[in-house]
Design a protein around this nucleic acid. Structure first.
Lengths: 136, 136
DNA sequence: CTGGGTGCAAAGTATTTGCATGAAC
DNA sequence: GTTCATGCAAATACTTTGCACCCAG
């Protein structure tokens, strides 16, 4: 019952041993979508009453290196982490601070950049800040 | 000769006293376009042999609050700072780490978001990572 | 069994704060 | 003259490291 989504295989596919702590981190990211270090630590304390922040940091860093998760840098806020998934972008509500994924096609942007410069794009980070449906 | 671009008035218009340190920070941002805290500190030390990092932090934070400058969060890198200017986006070279401004219109993105969600967009942060002309 | 993960404590880095002095206006 | 900035030192916050012990495979 520690893991709701058997991330065991997913972790192993990324060369990560499936420890209870890592399964719980995976579950938290799956459940909350985006979470910062401090909130993740507080959440983890509920299940692992003696987990160390160092363990969180070590695991987050390793999971990033192994492309199991991604860091999302958010304007004015602390970075959050999410499970690696299909290409998408982020909506950040300035009021409630919630982050929502948005799946859109930004080919037009890449085309525009190509005509303006010689830059070879490999990755796009896009965060749209504003007001979410609930906060309007 | 401390300031090359008389940022005195600009600073005052943003409710900031025009001290030599602030003029020098303004000059550095103008000259380099984008710079992180550490590089800025090293640069400042050349002109102010006893400037404190605390002074840099206090000024950067105040300048951001007063909208004289902006923080740019860069994937995998430390944040950089730039003078506030017309709406634009950033190209980050993964090889040489240089950051370039790009002025394009992203109306199509906003339109797409509007059709997909009820989110009210007020600001867009876009960083395109890849390889710059020189590094290809 | 073996390699790698965990928790703890300590070290290392980054950022902020308080205060006496000094400069901007 | 008054308000606010500066530099220093100290405090706080954030992140990484080293190591003894333990668990996943």
């Amino acid at each position: 019952m520690l893991s709701m989504n058997n991330f065991t295989d997913e972790l192993r596919q990324h060369n990560l041993k499936a420890t209870p702590q890592r399964l719980a981190i995976s579950d938290a990211l799956y459940k909350y979508g985006h979470i910062n270090i401090d909130d993740l630590y507080l959440l983890m304390l509920k299940n692992f009453h003696s987990i160390s922040l160092a363990t969180i940091y070590k695991n987050i860093n390793l999971m990033i290196e192994n492309s199991f998760i991604q860091e999302v840098k958010v304007p004015k806020e602390k970075s959050v982490y999410e499970l690696t998934k299909d290409i998408h972008y982020h909506l950040l509500c300035s009021t409630c601070k919630e982050i929502e994924d948005i799946f859109i096609d930004i080919q037009t942007i890449h085309t525009q950049v190509k005509t303006k410069s010689n830059f070879e794009i490999s990755k796009t980070d896009l965060v749209l800040s504003g007001t979410c449906k609930n906060c309007q």
